[in-house]
Nucleic acid binder design. Structure first.
Length: 277
DNA sequence: ATTTTCCCCTGCCGGC
DNA sequence: TGCCGGCAGGGGAAAA
């Protein structure tokens, strides 16, 4: 599933290719992608525009256009963005297509059709209305300090894992990297968030940043449908320590990794390293 | 106010 | 071999 490292990998690839290119034509094949706005309206809004930069907020990817309009994309579960230098498009689950003035193309493929595309217009309240309260602190930014994490956890009575999955608090963590970060920090996923002591909070803060950095460096994890912006696999899947590894020996203590359900999400952890709450 | 449940959608996998 | 139920999960709305 595309989480922060996967989306950041795609962003970096697109940000050295798209800026300066003009969108010759936009085609939206699935009306659900742009709803409630119509495909026609989005196509008209994109045609002829030049991409200025490619940005990311949490798991959201934005093509910032000349004039300040912003095409916001979310890949959700199975979305894929694939840039090609030519117009030969081989995409099984194609939902949208951008053709640039030099003949290159960007496709949005998405087997399960959960992904979304919105066009935020400059000079309207689109930007504020869309972003307000949607995403919290960027975990790889300088803003995300140990103190900030401690403040987010303070007085929270719910378990730590669902809290870390809340995009409005920390932006970009998903099921996979939360499992990996909690393991690295030796914190059980069901611990009450506000009950972590100072040392545990500090370990968790470091673990989140470390795991995300390593994953970005590895180009993301291709555990199922994820491919990067050029259609290639990442290599983080081989570096996962507990996620999807039920029954395998814990890399730290050799006790078999276990799987349970937390907040309705498949959750992997080491019963020895991550003490019961 | 915060936390939990449900739903969207389709490929895949195990069981029979 | 083929059918079928269950599972996967990001996020947002609805319910608790």
């Amino acid at each position: 599933m595309p989480e922060l490292p996967e989306v950041e990998t795609i962003r970096r690839q697109l940000d050295v290719r798209l800026p300066g290119r003009r969108i010759e034509r936009a085609t939206v094949l699935d009306p659900k992608l742009t709803a409630p706005e119509s495909p026609q309206s989005i196509e008209d809004g994109l045609g002829g525009r030049v991409v200025r930069t490619v940005a990311r907020r949490g798991k959201y990817l934005s093509l910032v256009l000349d004039g300040g309009d912003e095409l916001v994309l979310h890949l959700r579960m199975t979305g894929r963005l694939h840039w090609r230098s030519g117009s030969e498009v081989d995409e099984r689950y194609l939902r949208a297509l951008l053709t640039f003035d030099d003949g290159s193309t960007l496709t949005f493929g998405d087997a399960r059709r959960f992904g979304t595309a919105r066009l935020l217009r400059a000079g309207s309240d689109d930007h504020a209305a869309y972003w307000d309260g949607r995403v919290g602190v960027e975990p790889l930014s300088a803003d995300f300090t140990g103190r900030v994490l401690a403040e987010l956890l303070a007085a929270r009575r719910g378990p730590i894992k669902p809290l870390l999955l809340n995009q409005a608090l920390v932006a970009g963590l998903g099921n996979m990297y939360v499992d990996e970060a909690l393991f690295a920090a030796r914190v059980h996923p069901l611990r009450v968030a506000g009950g972590l002591d100072a040392d545990e909070t500090r370990r968790l803060h470091r673990a989140i940043r470390d795991r995300l950095r390593v994953a970005v460096e590895a180009g993301g994890a291709s555990i199922d449908s994820y491919r990067d912006g050029l259609g290639e696999r990442g290599s983080m899947q081989g570096l996962l320590r507990v996620h999807l590894r039920a029954g395998d020996p814990c890399p730290r203590c050799r006790v078999p990794v276990r799987k349970t359900s937390v907040g309705g999400r498949g959750t992997y952890w080491c019963p020895s390293c991550q003490e019961d709450p």
